[in-house]
């Protein structure tokens, strides 16, 4: 047998393998929903609390029909994306300012540690009072959760750039800004991307908690109000929407990651 056919065989085997995995994954998903449907149907799990896939689907259809779901979805998604972008951007900017002055960085160090250790969610009521019960509070909540950890991680990436690269720049008499542009930033791209991925999750936490508190609009609000009127169909519907949206957002970040890593040849 020649190498051509061997290679073909190898590829076919790989394809079969990945198709098999996909099949099992789908099967597992179906099983989960089936289990959920059956257990709630025969009241092994209380359908009042655990709802059921069919009830959720029915609710989805009515809510799509009377257009009372989409505005909430859109609202939450917008808040999350804005919170995510601003949190990461702000974190990067703070990291840059720390990098540009060693003294500032050293002075700020313990404060960053404290801020990072503090559970930001505890600030919720304060944020609500300061920014009012509106979108702004929700976005600030999302930013507050992701910004400190982004700052710390990105700043430490800046600091870990191989000092010999910096030496090369120094030999060319490069300014700080030039050094940052040509060396420090590109060298830190992988770290910045990994914080992007973490921040997707953090922004969702911030937004949902924010909506719990503000309680006027969005999927977080639907969860809270569904809970208050004991409509768990609504709670589950909102949860499923969140899972789907968060996954899509994560996948988008992964696409950006692939693009950037390729662009900077990592």
């Amino acid at each position: 047998m020649d190498t051509e056919t061997l290679h073909e065989q190898f590829k076919r085997k790989r394809r079969l393998e990945s198709r098999k995995i996909l099949l099992f994954q789908l099967l597992l998903l179906v099983l989960i929903f089936l289990f959920w449907q059956i257990t709630t149907h025969y009241r092994i799990l209380d359908p009042l609390i655990f709802s059921s896939p069919l009830a959720v689907a029915k609710l989805l259809v009515t809510k799509v029909m009377d257009a009372t779901l989409f505005p909430h979805v859109w609202f939450t998604l917008m808040e999350t994306v804005i919170g995510f972008l601003l949190g990461t951007l702000l974190g990067t900017l703070i990291a840059i300012s720390l990098w540009s002055s060693i003294t500032v960085a050293k002075v700020m160090d313990p404060y960053l540690v404290v801020l990072n250790a503090m559970p930001k969610v505890a600030l919720g009521p304060m944020i609500l009072v300061i920014f009012g019960p509106n979108v702004l509070s929700v976005i600030v909540m999302a930013i507050s959760i992701s910004v400190i950890v982004s700052t710390i991680v990105i700043f430490s990436a800046f600091q870990q750039v191989n000092e010999n690269y910096l030496k090369v720049m120094q030999l060319f008499n490069a300014s700080k800004a030039q050094t940052f542009k040509h060396v420090v930033l590109p060298a830190s791209i992988p770290t910045i991307i990994s914080t992007l991925k973490v921040n997707v999750g953090l922004s969702w936490v911030g937004v949902i908690v924010g909506e719990f508190l503000v309680s006027s609009k969005g999927l977080g609000y639907l969860i809270i109000s569904g809970f208050q009127i004991f409509n768990f169909n609504l709670v589950f519907l909102s949860l499923i929407m969140i899972v789907i949206l968060a996954t899509i957002m994560y996948k988008c970040v992964e696409m950006i990651e692939r693009f950037l890593l390729k662009k900077f040849n990592f």
Partner: peptide, 10 residues
Amino acid sequence: LQQDFLFPWK
């Protein structure tokens, strides 16, 4: 320098 230290992203 003792090693080449070319920038891998350029």
